[in-house]
Nucleic acid binder design. Structure first.
Length: 272
DNA sequence: ATGCCCTATGATATAGGA
């Protein structure tokens, strides 16, 4: 099973590239972020035409997440348990579903803007709600493969940005944000590290200043997987080619291949 | 080369991104 996550920075602006990429990469499950459209405006029909079921959570101009699946799309959950509001609004930033026996969450973690900003506190509260929501699912079904995938808007380590000195005083690299990710990992989730097809394993490069070809990237699109998921991973890579050329998103897809059948074999009687 | 910001919106400026 091939599972991918991609912040598309507007699904309508990216539609041609998204459809072409689905045909090229042949993912079974895709988590999308930054749809920038309401549910009614999501291009459901052309995606369905490629064999995918679609679940979306979008309200309009900002945010928005979706799950596409051609291996079943069940138990859809919209939003987090105890999800905080921002300026009185419930923002569309998380959608969960069970796809072919694998529990998947597509998340678009708040940016935070700058340390001390209301949005920064909101980001930390949001990550705490994510931990509560996923923690309950892991407790209820500990042997089911599960992964949180999406744009976490946090670089887990200094090696996940091209130059840490540039980020002094900025969001994405602060200790509280990294602690929030550590708290997620405390649930038993592992950071599945994708290989880079070229250069460093970054997933985002700013549109400005030729960041892509200068190597000014960040690894902020992550795959946080429980043991049943992580143990089934056979490959993981960043599809940097999708960041190239005209009409690209500023994020590249992260692709994970799973051998779910092998993982499902009971441990009892196994060779190791 | 991959090449120097992009997207949606009560739009001809602005907010947000990270």
């Amino acid at each position: 099973m091939r599972i991918a996550t991609w912040n598309v920075n507007s699904v309508t602006a990216r539609l041609d590239r998204l459809l072409a990429w689905l045909e090229l990469a042949q993912p079974d499950v895709v988590a999308l972020q930054e749809l920038k459209c309401a549910d009614a405006a999501f291009p459901t029909m052309p995606v369905q035409a490629l064999g995918y079921e679609v679940a979306t959570l979008g309200t309009g101009r900002w945010n928005g997440v979706a799950l596409l699946s051609r291996v079943g799309l069940d138990e859809v959950t919209h939003g987090l348990t105890g999800q905080p509001q921002y300026e009185g609004a419930d923002e569309p930033r998380a959608i969960g579903a069970t796809c072919g026996g694998v529990r998947v969450w597509s998340v678009y973690v708040p940016n935070g803007r700058e340390p001390g900003h209301d949005h920064y506190g909101y980001k930390l509260e949001w990550l705490a709600a994510l931990r509560v929501t996923v923690g309950a699912e892991l407790t209820a079904e500990p042997s089911r493969p599960l992964a949180i995938i999406g744009d976490f808007n946090v670089a887990p380590t200094d090696d996940d940005v091209w130059d840490i000195s540039v980020f002094e005083g900025s969001t994405h690299v602060t200790e509280p944000e990294r602690q929030a990710l550590a708290d997620l990992r405390e649930l038993g989730l592992a950071d599945v590290l994708p290989r880079a097809l070229k250069g460093n394993p970054y997933t985002f490069w700013d549109y400005r200043n030729g960041a892509l070809h200068r190597g000014w990237g960040m690894r902020i699109d992550l795959v946080y997987a429980n043991p049943a998921f992580a143990g089934a991973v056979t490959d993981a890579y960043i599809d940097r080619d999708e960041r190239k050329g005209k009409g690209a998103s500023d994020h590249a897809p992260v692709v994970v291949d799973l051998d779910v059948a092998a993982q499902a074999i009971p441990a009892a009687g196994a060779e190791r």
